[in-house]
Amino acid sequence: MSVFTLSQAEKEKVLLEQLSGLVEHHRERCEPYARILAANGYTGADSVADLPWLPVRLFKNLDLKSIDDDEVFKVLTSSGTTGEVSKIYLDKAAAATQTRQLAATVQTVLGPKRLPMLLVDTKAMLKDRRSFSARGAGVLGMSTFGRDHVWALDDDGHVDLDKIRAFLEKHGDEPFLIFGFTFMVWLHLYEVAIDNGLDLSNGILIHSGGWKKLIDQAVSPEEFRRRLAGVGLTRTHNFYGMVEQIGTIFLEGPPGGSLYCPDFADVVVRDPQTWAELPPGQPGLLEVVSTLPTSYPGHVLLTEDLGVVHGIDDGDWPGKHFSVLGRLPRAEARGCSDTYKEAA
C-alpha cells in the first residue's frame, strides 16, 4: 500500500490536526520544549507552516525527550563532524512506528517481497545494537527489506570483490536490492563495477547522503544516475532523511529529479532572513515535519539544508516534490557517508 496518496490540501488538513496534537503532547511531557513554546508565545496554528519549529541543531545542545528514562529503548546519534552529536531517544512504540512507516515508504518502489540484498558498507559498525550512529541506524533499518545479505566491504572497510561476485553469480539474474550511502556506492560499487565488468542490471539501488564529496568531484545527481546506467543500474532512488526524524524519508520518484513527501510528512521552504514560507520555485531553508516523533519533540524541525519545491500535485506522486540544494553556508558538514573515513 502506497504512502504517497494524499493531495496537498488533504495532507495539510490531516497533518495540521495531528501535528498540533503532537505540540501539546510534547509540551506536557518535555519541560525544555514547554519553555521554548512559552518563550515564543505559541497559542495555536492555522496551517502547517504556522506550527512552531525547533532548529535541528538544538538536539546537539539539549536532551529533548518526552518519555521517562526507564522508557528509553534506543538512543540514536547524528553524524556531525565537530564532535557535537544529536541524541534521539526512542521508546518501544516510537521505534516500532518508525520501522513500520519506513517499510511502507520503501515498499512503494520495492514491492512487498524481500529481495536479495547487497549492502555497500561494512558490518563492523553495528557492534553496539543499543546506540547507533545515523549511518548505522540507516543501514540496519534498510537491511530489514532484504534477505541473503552480503556486505560489500570487509571489517576493515576494504572492498570484498569475491563476495560481490559471488552475490551476483547467485542473485544477478533476478531483481536484487542494493543499499549504500551515495559516496560509498560511487567509490566502492560503481568504480569497482567499471573496473571489473560487473553487471548490475537487475539491481534496484536505494541511496542517500554523501553528495558533498561527489559535488567536490563535479559529479551531479544527474551524472551519478547516468554513470550508474553505464553498469546497467537504471532503477535508482535517492532519499533525504535525518536521524532527528528517524523513520521518515523523502523518496526520489521513479524518473528521478525530485523527492516526494509521504502522507505522514511534508516540507516547508522558508526565507532564511524573514522565516516566511516561500512559494514553489524559490529556494530557501528546508523545514521538515513528520507525525512519527512521539518520544521526543522532533515533529517540526528547521534543518540547515537549502532546498526548493518544484511543484505541488503535478508530479509522479501527489503533494509537494522538491530538491535539496546543499548545506546552508557555514553550517556544520554532516551526512552519514560524509563522515566515512576511507580505509588506508
Rank of each mutant, 00 (worst) to 15 (best):
D313G: 11
T122F: 06
P175Q: 08
L51G: 13
D305L: 01
A104P: 02
G83A: 13
D160G: 12
D121K: 02
Q98L: 15
I204S: 00
E71T: 05
W211I: 08
I88P: 02
L328Q: 15
M1V: 12
F73P: 00
L22F: 04
R114L: 05
D305N: 13
P283Q: 09
G241V: 01
D216G: 07
W275R: 14
H299C: 12
G319E: 05
F183C: 11
L126R: 08
Y190M: 08
C30K: 03
D148V: 02
H299T: 08
K127V: 08
P293N: 12
L126Q: 14
H188K: 15
F132T: 02
F183G: 00
Y240M: 10
N40R: 15
D50R: 09
L325N: 06
R147C: 07
Y240H: 12
R100D: 03
L37G: 09
G111F: 06
F183M: 11
R29H: 14
T291F: 00
M142G: 01
A39C: 03
F145T: 00
L228C: 13
L259P: 06
V159G: 02
G172I: 04
A331F: 05
P329I: 00
C30W: 02
T81D: 04
V219S: 07
L51I: 12
V85W: 11
V3A: 14
R114H: 04
A94C: 15
V75T: 15
G146D: 07
S290Y: 03
G197Q: 09
V267L: 11
R235W: 04
L110D: 01
M242Q: 12
S20P: 05
M1Y: 05
E191F: 06
G257Q: 12
F264P: 02
H25S: 12
V308C: 09
P52M: 05
G44E: 10
L6I: 03
V150Y: 01
S143A: 14
T339L: 10
L140Y: 10
D70T: 13
P116V: 00
V75Y: 05
H188C: 15
N202K: 14
S78D: 08
K341L: 12
R35M: 06
N202V: 00
T77M: 15
K170V: 02
P280S: 02
C336Q: 10
F132G: 00
T182P: 07
K65E: 10
A96V: 02
S133R: 01
P329K: 06
H188Y: 15
K213Y: 10
